[in-house]
Design a protein around this nucleic acid. Structure first.
Lengths: 97, 97
DNA sequence: TTATATTTGACAGCAAATGACAAGCCATAG
DNA sequence: CTATGGCTTGTCATTTGCTGTCAAATATAA
């Protein structure tokens, strides 16, 4: 459930609102081609763009940020056998603050 | 308990074995200055170098890899309020395979 | 066909990472 | 003191990898 990537998520939101790539691109001040690539996971969004997308697509910023961060973490650990252990370790390091 | 960074970890191991930076550097085929920086966290090791370090320092490769990956994840999520949630989400995504 | 939406590949420009080198610091031995 | 050995620091050239644009291609609809 809700296991969509960042790209899939924003595409679904955009379509549910009937927005065009061109409109979202304009709001983010980037080329239409780029937002198309982001939606298909061929490129990754910038942190700033995530905020703008959250506003535009009317989703709570933190919810979108979690998905975005998770995608980035995925890029690091996928293919790594030690992935799970690394995540657990990081959790512990983070909660100790 | 074992909350050391990658650099701190390999430095402790190296010193416990009485090895010189010069010797480790030679084994990894890099400059001494570079391994010094890696130990102090000023630079990050390459994946290949982690393997070589594990062999040289006689630590199980997976254990070192976990620390190295965790450092990389840390770099992404630290400073992020949504860090913990992102880690949890990634865990779920990973275990679904 | 024509118009509109999206995708694709190639590219320039820029930023970050990599590693080497030389000079510097610090402790210790002589 | 001077010399040596180990480590650190700053700078630099090079490489690697992002970022976004553009033009062309594809698709969908009217």
């Amino acid at each position: 459930m809700s296991d969509k990537t960042f790209g899939e998520t924003i595409r679904a939101l955009r379509e549910s609102k009937g927005l065009l790539l061109r409109q979202v691109a304009a709001a983010l001040e980037i080329d239409t081609a780029l937002i198309s690539k982001i939606e298909r996971g061929e490129r990754t969004a910038q942190r700033e763009q995530v905020s703008k997308l959250a506003a535009m697509l009317e989703i709570e910023e933190e919810r979108l940020m979690v998905i975005w961060l998770s995608d980035k973490i995925m890029n690091i650990v996928e293919e790594e056998p030690a992935a799970y252990k690394a995540l657990k370790k990081t959790e512990k390091r983070i909660t100790k603050n």
